[in-house]
């Protein structure tokens, strides 16, 4: 499938920003399930300072704001050719040891709420993939998809308490629970083409767990399936914090308003 992706984030600041930096993880990489035909990042109201590859092999772009900026716009555009690999991503590459993905983070603590979701799963399944799909189903049962109840700082535990959340919360809960069952697990941010529309609400998020003999396998909890050729992987990390499309810091008072515009369409 050939996917045409457009992703614009626009920040408006109440007062001019003296100095600000943003880390972008918005560059997808070619791999077995996806070939990047072309990809561009354009910045208005700021400039690219440097680029590097982080410890999760994500391509990171550091940008700075123009002096006294009141707006900054980051626009990504590109064409990605995808194939359906049924969620299988493959072997762990690079030098990060698998055990690192068993470390829990602030957002993915294995609290009693999280552990409750794993009860009996081991006993009921002798196949890891079936087990993890069952976990995924339990999560969407317990935490219904609802926008606006949680934000990027919401932990897995809190989302379970609330009983509602978005793809990011589902991913965090899955990661926390999978790690509690000794699976290495990680967070994935990327794009999903919804079948019925071009305009998407936001970027998408799902999770991957590492299964002996198979390697990394993706689970989109919110949509109760493994990623297929409608998915484009952009960045991974232990949780949202390490894979966020934009994380930034600015000096200057006042509030900010963000508008995000994502389009994914089949070419």
């Amino acid at each position: 499938m050939l996917l045409n992706i457009g992703h614009t984030s626009k920040y408006r600041f109440e007062h001019p920003v003296h100095y600000g930096l943003q880390q972008l993880r918005k560059t997808p990489k070619s791999r077995s399930s996806q070939a990047i035909r072309n990809w561009t990042i354009e910045i208005e109201g700021g400039r690219i300072e440097t680029e590097f590859t982080d410890h999760h092999a994500n391509d990171v772009t550091l940008i700075s704001f123009d002096p006294s900026a009141t707006e900054i716009t980051i626009q990504c555009r590109g064409l990605v050719e995808t194939t359906d690999e049924h969620g299988v991503v493959g072997k762990q590459r690079g030098c990060i040891p698998l055990w690192l993905f068993q470390r829990s983070t602030e957002l993915t603590r294995a609290t009693p709420n999280v552990r409750r979701l794993t009860k009996g799963l081991r006993e009921a399944h002798d196949n890891d993939i079936a087990l993890l799909h069952a976990l995924s189903a339990r999560i969407i049962d317990a935490v219904r998809y609802e926008i606006g109840q949680t934000d990027t700082a919401t932990s897995a535990d809190t989302a379970i308490e609330r009983g509602s959340g978005v793809c990011q919360d589902h991913a965090h809960i899955f990661i926390a629970a999978a790690r509690a069952m000794d699976f290495p697990a990680r967070y994935v941010s990327g794009y999903l083409m919804m079948d019925d529309r071009t305009e998407q609400d936001a970027t998408h998020a799902w999770a991957e767990a590492h299964i002996d003999g198979i390697g990394w396998v993706g689970f989109d909890i919110s949509n109760a399936m493994s990623p297929d050729d409608r998915y484009v992987r952009v960045a991974t990390g232990l949780d949202y914090g390490e894979a966020a499309p934009i994380s930034g810091l600015r000096f200057g008072a006042g509030s900010e308003a963000l508008t995000v515009d994502v389009t994914v369409a089949q070419q």
């Binding site: 930096l21 880390q23 440097t50 680029e51 590097f52 590859t53 982080d54 990171v60 550091l62």
Partner: peptide, 12 residues
């Protein structure tokens, strides 16, 4: 120093 680690990873 915000961003010093980015610059470090970029080898500068």
């Amino acid at each position: 120093v915000p961003g010093i680690f980015d610059v470090y990873r970029a080898g500068r």
